[in-house]
């Protein structure tokens, strides 16, 4: 009775498998373009709101004014939201049994996470492109050389990479997409505001100013501003990280990844293994 044809099953390796899963996620975006709102309409609205509504009453000493100052901040916020994208996608796949389906296949179990990470980085990169274009339209320019400009983008993407681990941690721990939205909105959102992203920190109350200047998001924003020539002279009494934003940003990326990645993997394992 075993005349039935059995095709050859080949182990194509982690990268091919992850790419297949990432392509599936891209297809989701094609089918539901509104999934991209978080990196298109939303940040563009923020840029416009802050540039035109609040911008007129925020004083900065940046050469091209507040709009140039603003761009790096909004980009930092958007890559921080990469964690959001990962967490929502992962929770939804866990909930629907898609992850179990993948785990029952002869593939590297990490492919589910790597595939999700690749698509999230691409997702966030779309946001960086959209915002750069918006910025160019309203008068933002990069005043340095191409290497520093590129390094700024690399730091933003590196930040997005660290955020992916937070996304995997939250996505593995939560039982529903709604819960993910709640948790992420209640944490990441205020963290991205309690920083130098939208307004200079030197006029904040002293305690808040210290918190804001030690906020990792501030290091990232300040680093990118410096690399793009969008920074203003450091105010009197700025905290230590503001004087060395680039090493601090790299340090934060490494630290967050080193601490959160093992936790995230453990949470994902215990969520799926039982």
């Amino acid at each position: 009775m075993s005349t039935i044809e059995r095709p050859e099953i080949r182990d194509t390796g982690l990268l091919t498998q992850s790419w297949a899963i990432a392509r599936r996620n891209f297809r989701h975006i094609r089918r539901m373009p509104e999934m991209l709102l978080d990196v298109t309409i939303q940040p563009v609205m923020f840029v416009l709101l802050f540039a035109y509504v609040f911008g007129s009453s925020i004083d900065v000493a940046t050469p091209a004014g507040y709009r140039a100052f603003l761009l790096a901040g909004i980009m930092a916020q958007t890559v921080a939201f990469a964690s959001f994208i990962v967490a929502v996608g992962l929770t939804s796949d866990l909930e629907k049994g898609i992850v179990d389906r993948m785990r029952s296949l002869p593939i590297n179990p990490a492919a589910v996470l790597v595939g999700r990470s690749i698509s999230s980085i691409v997702h966030a990169s779309i946001g960086l492109v959209v915002m750069s274009l918006t910025g160019l339209l309203i008068g933002w320019r990069i005043h340095t050389n191409i290497f520093e400009a590129a390094f700024g983008y690399v730091l933003l993407l590196g930040w997005g990479f660290a955020m992916i681990w937070i996304g995997i941690l939250v996505g593995s721990a939560m039982r529903s997409v709604e819960a993910v939205n709640g948790v992420m909105f209640a944490t990441i959102f205020p963290i991205t505001f309690l920083a130098n992203t939208f307004a200079p920190t030197d006029r904040m109350p002293p305690f808040l100013r210290t918190v804001a200047e030690w906020n990792p998001i501030s290091s990232l924003t300040q680093a990118v501003r410096e690399l793009w020539g969008n920074d203003q002279p450091l105010a009197e009494g700025a905290a230590f990280p503001m004087h060395h934003p680039i090493p601090f940003t790299i340090g934060w990326i490494i630290l967050i990844t080193a601490v959160v990645a093992p936790l995230a993997i453990r949470t994902f394992r215990s969520r799926t293994a039982d």
């Binding site: 095709p7 050859e8 099953i9 080949r10 182990d11 194509t12 091919t16 498998q17 297949a20 899963i21 599936r24 297809r27 989701h28 089918r31 539901m32 629907k96 049994g97 898609i98 179990d100 389906r101 993948m102 029952s104 296949l105 002869p106 593939i107 492919a111």
Partner: peptide, 29 residues
């Protein structure tokens, strides 16, 4: 092969794409 309790098909893919995705993960020709 495993067919779980809830139908674990990917709702945003077509039927054919669902088959192709899993087939590709199996490394089929």
């Amino acid at each position: 092969g495993l067919t779980g309790q809830a139908a674990t098909v990917d709702e945003l893919l077509t039927g054919r794409e669902n088959l192709r995705l899993i087939g590709r993960l199996y490394g089929l020709d």
